[in-house]
Design a protein around this nucleic acid. Structure first.
Lengths: 340, 340
DNA sequence: GTGAAAGCGCTAACAT
DNA sequence: ATGTTAGCGCTTTCAC
């Protein structure tokens, strides 16, 4: 690899001068003519600065780590894409890491990434209680949470306006005449699971529904299998006229799993029961039935998180939380209350 | 951050000794007792080696870059996941980059990543002619291609055994009685597009089909929109008894788009026309109709590519190509030839 | 088995 | 405006 000293020699200047000429921020300290000579030399030698040496010297790696639970969950690719794009604009690179929600793995990887001198972290793996993250945040590690937040709201975050989304779902369902609406709740150790559940109950109450008619079933995870199990339980518990006519699942995967349980039970969606999800994961329009859900601008969340993080890195300030709007997407899995 | 010299001081040894004690490969050159003292000191100080300094000194960053066209294409997340996991096992980290098939962007990012001293590249963006990659490979940059390969087969690669997959599809369709089978071909500048097309034609010929009855329509990309357009063209071109009774789309996205065109044309799948895809992207079972396709072990491809790359980095050798088996997945989008 | 010292390639403070 | 110098934190060759 050609080094800075090679460029300097070719341009007939000292390496220090070449460095200044190459760096746009210090270029003004070098005569226009020298700058040109250095630039030409660098170009003709195909000089590519060694980021490792630069990082060692400046203590800035211009790398940001992205922590996600699992890239094969369709929720995350758009976020990563958004982060990566926003980073690239500023000359930063993205180190991607999947943690599988495994605490040990997460701790190991986090330490490793700190050792790699990552300038900051975009974190999609937060649990409400998260000693590792809380500690790192307290230590001043630049960090922005996406989607999920900590109970102690002292860490910058970018999330969807989930409350608004849940409200919209409940309004939609009550508008269709539903008075018995169940919620398949996500893991309560995640802020998303908690907020959606709480907002669901609040919204139902505001809509004048009897709390006894808005049961909540806890799913064991944000997965299709958990959705099926939760719906099975719902159908086993509430029979006959007690059976809810609509279900709000805490996310799309739960909703898809719930649809399976419904079908296995011999019930049709939406004729016998309406089902709504959350997130608007890809390809939902192609499913049977196309799922009513809340669109969350995942890519934008990722991009905003990256921008916020770079700002934190450059000039630490008080933590900010950004809430991005989300919108109900009405499809065919929700419909009017069954008659009779 | 605590440095090696801190650990050395705490253990009462010279930094050089601490370094040897910490490194498993050189540990045997240090007395067992000293090793223990250093390890204890490192542990109690929470020492995390500075990978940047190490990389500068050893000229090994232990980072690998992954180049993909677009993470939001459901094909790629499993690959990335596989790569990342296999890398993590060996203490390597993954830098992820999306190129959007934009040559300039790709060249810029590639140069940037080389500047970051990435030890190697897993490349999912190869076109058949690819000066940038050919050049880099010739320069000895460690690199493994996934899914797509170069025309000059001099670069290591891990791909699905596409020919076998295409054969299986054609056999499946002819077994169902189809004698008029069309192919919606992918971009011919990609090896996948070319191989699938060629193998399709070969297989049909081997099956004794009249070449006039196995038309090929070129799609402009591997996308749903391109699939719709290609199917529109097919339906406009071959009418009445000339209309194929089955279509093999070069990938699942094309097939999904084709289904839309079919529906818009008032034709049912599979009653009026069978449709098969390729790749077995996620959630295909939930679509209407569930798509018959060829399963490609994307995550395994990623993992094998990463392992192959690490081997190349450690001990360069002649390029190897690994072909992973893929399997037909029969679902409901293919059926017997319509009667009459 | 351990210490000393050099140097990876770069930037930034200081000197001219 | 440019040259000089030191040093980021580590590994590794060379002494002892």
């Amino acid at each position: 690899m050609t080094r800075l000293s090679d460029v300097a020699r070719a341009a007939g200047v000292h390496p220090g001068t070449a460095s200044r000429a190459l760096n746009p921020d210090t270029r003004h300290r070098v005569s226009a003519e020298t700058v040109k000579r250095v630039l030409v030399a660098a170009e003709s030698l195909g000089y590519q600065p060694n980021s490792v040496a630069r990082a060692l010297r400046t203590r800035r790696s211009r790398m940001v780590a992205i922590l996600i639970p699992d890239l094969t969950n369709p929720l995350f690719p758009p976020i990563v894409r958004g982060v990566e794009e926003a980073l690239a604009v500023k000359g930063y690179s993205a180190l991607l890491v999947s943690t599988d929600n495994d605490e040990d793995k997460e701790a190991r990887l986090f330490a490793e990434l700190r050792g790699r001198q990552c300038d900051g972290f975009v974190v999609a793996t937060a649990r409400r209680k998260h000693p590792l993250l809380a500690r790192a945040a307290a230590d001043g590690v630049p960090m922005v949470l996406v989607n999920r937040v900590l109970d102690s709201r002292h860490t910058p975050s970018v999330t969807a306006d989930e409350a608004a989304g849940v409200h919209a779902v409940v309004r939609h369902l009550t508008g269709l005449g539903h008075r018995r609406i169940a919620h398949l709740a996500g893991p309560q150790e995640l802020s998303t699971g908690l907020i959606r559940r709480r907002t669901f109950l609040d919204s139902c109450e505001q809509a004048g529904l009897d709390p006894r008619n808005t049961p909540v079933i806890d799913a064991t995870g944000f997965s299709e299998a958990a959705g099926t199990a939760a719906m099975d339980k719902l159908l086993a518990t509430y029979r006959g006229p007690e059976r809810p006519t609509a279900v709000f699942a805490a996310n799309d995967l739960l909703a898809l799993g719930a649809l399976d349980a419904l079908a296995a039970f011999g019930l049709r969606c939406p004729e016998d029961m309406s089902v709504a999800g959350f997130n608007d994961m890809p390809f939902l329009t192609r499913m049977t039935p196309p799922l009513t859900t809340v669109h969350v601008p995942q890519q934008e969340i990722g991009a905003e998180a990256a921008r916020m993080l770079l700002k934190c890195i450059d000039q630490p300030g008080p933590p900010r939380s950004l809430l991005l709007g989300c919108a109900l997407v009405e499809r065919a899995s929700t419909g009017p209350v069954p008659q009779g």
